[in-house]
Structure formats: C-alpha cells, structure tokens
C-alpha cells in the first residue's frame, strides 16, 4: 500500500492543475499486490484476469473486482504449464489462455461454469503468442507466428 502512495499523490496534484485524471483504486490495488508479481492484466466487466508469479512459478489468477477477492479457476492452471497471455469475457465465463506446455505453445479456451478446457488449433499451423477475447465472448483475436511473420487470426467461438 505504501508504494502506491506516490501515484496517488501525483494524481491528486495533477488533478488540481489539469482537471480530472485517472485515480488509483487503493483497496483493489492492495489485493492485487498481495498476489505477488503480476503481469498481462485483462479487464472485462467485473473481472480482472492476470498472470501472477510467486516463488518462481506463474499462474493465471482471476479477481472479482466487485467483491474484491480472488475467484478459483479449477482446472485452468497446471504446475507444468507456463502461462503466456490471458483474456476474459465480460460475463466472466470464458477465459482464453496461451500457454507453454511440454515444449509447445497452445491456445486453450476455459469455460468457468463447466470447468472445461478446450484446445483451439492454429490453422494453418503457427505458434500463438498473445490472445484477446472480445467482451461478448463470441470471438477471439490471437497473434500467431507463421513463417517468421506475426499475423492476427480471428476465431469465432460457438
């Protein structure tokens, strides 16, 4: 919490000079800090998905921002998988994840109500890197490496 103060003070000072500026959300930032070192945030609706590291191991964490607490995602994380990129829809139902597992990189779709994980093939073949799920959950955009170029695929989700 202490380390968040400079941001708050700066924001308040600037707010006085320049009009409204984005304000840090203190209590929620405290919750996020408690998870460890965090990266790749994805906001949608009341949800924040991110990749959180502690003790040299990273995993996907989901926070309910209205209840201000972590939400379990059983079956999403594996001890032998390295998360690369994550995204969530506004309903908090679908989570798209790029992860490295057993020497290969794959894109998977997690459905929270079913606790199911479905691999999504790259067609033509390629290596996924970064994924973003649109807020209504019906399509995702994924950055794919093919033949030395980065491309973007749009994948519809039934």
């Amino acid at each position: 919490m202490k380390s968040l103060l400079p941001t708050t003070v700066l924001a308040l000072l600037l707010a006085g000079c320049l009009g409204p500026v984005p304000m840090p959300i203190g209590p929620l930032n405290g919750r996020i800090e408690a998870l460890g070192a965090n990266r790749d945030p994805a906001l949608s609706g009341r949800w924040l998905a991110l990749i959180s590291g502690r003790g040299g191991r990273e995993q996907v964490q989901l926070l309910d921002l209205e209840r201000q607490q972590p939400v379990p995602v059983p079956g999403l994380n594996r001890a032998d998988a390295q998360p690369v990129s994550v995204s969530i829809d506004a309903a908090g139902e679908r989570i798209a994840l790029v992860r490295q597992l057993e020497g290969r990189t794959e894109l998977v779709l997690y459905r929270r109500s079913l606790q199911s994980l479905q691999p999504i093939a790259m067609v033509p073949s390629g290596v996924p890197r970064q994924v973003q799920l649109q807020a209504d959950g019906r399509q995702l955009a994924v950055q794919v490496s093919r033949g030395g170029l980065w491309q973007v695929d749009l994948v519809q989700i039934p």
Partner: peptide
C-alpha cells in the same frame, strides 16, 4: 484441438504491413 470458424484479419489496409501484433477487438 478443436477447429472453429476463423479467418485471418487480412492485410493492414493501405499500409502494406507484413507483420501485425497485439490484436484487440471491441466488445
């Protein structure tokens, strides 16, 4: 993994870009 309907996002308009990264879709 599953085959789902998909398409390449296509050329980046008039910019003739050959590489495209960090996609983000609206809602």
């Amino acid at each position: 993994g599953a085959w789902l309907p998909r398409r390449n996002a296509g050329p980046a308009g008039v910019l003739s870009a050959t590489s495209r990264q960090e996609p983000a879709l609206s809602g």
